[in-house]
């Protein structure tokens, strides 16, 4: 990196109203936290629900991040993404079940070890699967949205059926590793250990992705490619290779999200990824197609809102996220942090 010449930050030149408008999506999360606190009234219930909501949000973010990048960079709508979530969960849970001694041992080290192995196996398999999926299914239909939807839904169904073939037709119930069961008590609130772990993993991942996007050339290429792929190529970069890399990484992240979600639910089904895709799509759309930061904020909003509403008004919990999406799209039709597209 070169040394920085004198500069004047432009944010300081913007009128206050503009600066608030820019920061508004980020402010929505604390606003929702405060509103939730006021509506719930009881601090320990609020804390429990908040951790639960953040955990859910982080897991949805992990699943959504790859999808939004794939769309942003190559304009590809991949309904097959849900299949990677399921496959990740099955591979990961197979590891957890296979290493039963580690899983059942009352040792945090062994328990985390088994989770780490499960995650690595799931990401490796879904990454490879993503690579094959891109070559066989997505590549022939670049530029044709309708065909993409048909073909990727077809891929989703095929992979779900393959899960039935390999792991059998029934859902699989299992127990989380010993030390990740139960809750700790904090300020009178019961906080499930696993949810805290999920929040930590999600945060680390988000920070790591931000670093990659801000500090590395490959990150710059991806961000620039989302906005104007043609120009990135005219500067001498092979966007095609970058895109394959992003597709593989996005599939591996879906696999990671699948393991995390599976461990959270303690039951997995071949259709779980497909079910999650509704929330994932909501998050990607309200975040702004192609925006990882938007997806992060969107996922936190979805997770928190769903948990608060389930506590306050269980009857409307199912439609709360549709309501959130409607409200956000009325406010910002392109999503909260729309990516500027050249064309």
């Amino acid at each position: 990196m070169t040394d920085a010449p004198a500069h004047r930050p432009t944010m300081g030149d913007l009128p206050l109203a503009d600066r608030i408008a820019r920061a508004m999506p980020v402010l929505l999360v604390p606003i929702l936290l405060v509103l939730g606190f006021l509506a719930i009234g009881n601090p320990s219930s609020w804390l429990t629900l908040t951790v639960s909501g953040l955990a859910m949000g982080m897991m949805i973010f992990v699943m959504a991040s790859g999808l939004t990048l794939v769309f942003g960079l190559m304009d590809v709508i991949n309904f097959g993404h849900g299949a990677f979530i399921s496959v990740g969960a099955f591979v990961g849970v197979s590891v957890v079940l296979g290493l039963a001694e580690w899983t059942q041992a009352p040792s945090l080290l062994l328990n985390l070890g088994v989770v780490l192995l499960a995650v690595l196996a799931a990401m490796a398999v879904t990454g490879l699967l993503g690579w094959a999926f891109e070559r066989v299914i997505v590549k022939p239909v670049y530029g044709a949205h309708l065909k993409q939807i048909l073909v990727t839904v077809g891929g989703l169904i095929v992979i779900e059926q393959l899960i039935h073939v390999i792991w059998g037709p029934d859902e699989i119930f299992f127990a989380r590793p010993e030390m990740l069961k139960g809750a700790i008590t904090f300020w009178g609130a019961a906080l499930e250990k696993y949810r805290l772990l999920a929040v930590a993993v999600g945060l680390v991942l988000f920070v790591a992705m931000r670093m990659i996007f801000r500090r590395t050339k490959i990150g710059l290429i991806v961000r620039a490619g989302v906005e104007n792929g043609e120009m990135v190529e005219a500067l001498g970069y092979r966007l095609r290779l970058v895109f394959i890399g992003v597709f593989i990484a996005g599939s591996a992240l879906a696999g990671l999200g699948g393991v995390m979600w599976g461990l959270y639910q303690e039951v997995i089904t071949a259709g779980m990824g497909e079910e999650m895709m509704i929330l994932v799509f909501i998050v990607v759309i309200i975040g702004g197609l192609g925006s990882v930061e938007g997806a992060f904020i969107g996922a936190l909003l979805v997770g928190l809102l769903q948990n608060y509403i389930a506590f306050l008004e269980p009857k409307v919990a199912l439609i709360s996220n549709i309501g959130l999406m409607t409200a956000i799209l009325m406010w910002r039709p392109q999503g909260m942090m729309p990516v500027v597209k050249a064309k």
Binding site: L220, I221, V226, E227, N228, M231, V232, Y237
Partner: peptide, 16 residues
């Protein structure tokens, strides 16, 4: 149409 990457800083545009 200039093909500026508007989400990137001037420095990042030049780095690319």
């Amino acid at each position: 149409d200039m093909g500026i990457f508007s989400d990137l800083t001037v420095e990042e545009n030049m780095t690319l």
